[in-house]
């Protein structure tokens, strides 16, 4: 890829007083890439996004977004990016249409263009019927959809999304993700998003896992999973303590505690499954799963993902 990266970040960091929110982040995102930024609460995801969106001055390092420096060329950067914040930015006292119109006018769209875009956006998100309803009367999912519509109204070439699916039901989450994938595929929009729902990050081209303001892993989701070992063998039991030494003895590997009981990571599960049969006789359930991003996450950050 000889193209200039859509986002180029070097040694970017930010302190809030004595709190080091972002330590030093280095990364490049290519144009049209679907990039996931994952991390536990307080890892520095929102702070990073704010710096990339020119809303927060970095304490150190530099970042170029859409070819412009986020400090020096803030206005040029803002013209080319769209942002969907973690919390809604909608004005609850205005209607859906008024909120969108406010936005198109801020970006200098003419009245006619603005109307066409609003019609299109409302239709796209199935909100036409609520066009003249105050946003206060909207459900969380509808607000999120409208927020997203707002973020892409001016056709940004890079879209930042901070936990776009937080608090949505699975159906709504799927719809939003399907929409985002379409956006990159059909319009070549670069997506940079954070999420807590790790299973959702699978469609990302690449993900970075951040912890304590640093990137601890970066790569394609499949590649990250491979790094963990191919398969995860789960031993489902409520007597985990008792099974630990036996598992260690049977497999020669160190079992890890998990919600359901114990897990072991191996290259090839079929090689050790037969040796685990005696455990099932003692009431444990043995199953095999391919590792998920969540496993990668827990392994790297030492934390369960919880909300």
């Amino acid at each position: 890829m000889a193209q200039a990266p859509a986002i180029a970040v070097a040694g970017l960091g930010r302190d809030y007083g004595r709190v080091r929110a972002v330590d030093a982040v280095d990364l490049d995102v290519q144009p049209g890439e679907f990039f996931g930024f994952l991390g536990p609460n307080g890892a520095g995801k929102t702070t990073t996004i704010r710096m990339l969106c020119t809303l927060l001055q970095p304490s150190r390092g530099e970042a170029r977004v859409a070819g412009g420096d986020v400090v020096e060329n803030a206005l040029d950067v803002r013209r080319k990016i769209g942002v969907v914040f973690q919390e809604t930015t909608l004005d609850l006292d205005l209607t859906a249409e008024e909120n969108l119109r406010f936005c198109t006018r801020l970006y200098g769209l003419s009245r006619r263009d603005s109307k066409a875009r609003i019609d299109e956006a409302l239709q796209l998100f199935g909100l036409e019927e609520r066009r003249h309803a105050r946003v206060r009367s909207f459900s969380g999912g509808m607000r999120r959809a409208l927020d997203l519509a707002r973020g892409i109204l001016h056709r940004p070439s890079i879209l930042f999304l901070d936990e776009p699916t937080l608090g949505l039901d699975p159906g709504q989450r799927r719809r939003i993700w399907a929409f985002l994938q379409k956006l990159t595929r059909e319009h070549g929009t670069t997506l940079f998003l954070t999420t807590h729902y790790l299973e959702e990050a699978d469609p990302c081209d690449r993900v970075a896992i951040v912890d304590h303001g640093r990137i601890v892993a970066l790569g394609e989701p499949a590649e990250l999973k491979r790094r963990l070992g191919h398969d995860r063998v789960d031993v489902r039991t409520d007597r985990a303590e008792e099974f630990v030494p036996r598992l260690r003895e049977l497999t020669g590997l160190e079992p890890q505690r998990a919600q359901h009981g114990l897990s072991i990571f191996v290259d090839d599960a079929s090689a050790i499954l037969p040796s685990l049969l005696p455990l099932t006789a003692d009431g444990a359930e043995v199953g095999v799963t391919r590792p998920t991003l969540e496993d990668v996450f827990v392994d790297l950050t030492g934390r369960e993902v919880s909300l």
Binding site: N41, D211, V216, R248, E254
Partner: peptide, 22 residues
């Protein structure tokens, strides 16, 4: 709510039982 306590950087996967990880 929500904010988890911070664990030391790169805490290893929890060792199980009282045995040291081998």
């Amino acid at each position: 709510s929500r904010r988890l306590p911070r664990l030391p950087r790169r805490a290893p996967a929890l060792p199980v039982g009282d045995a040291a990880p081998s």
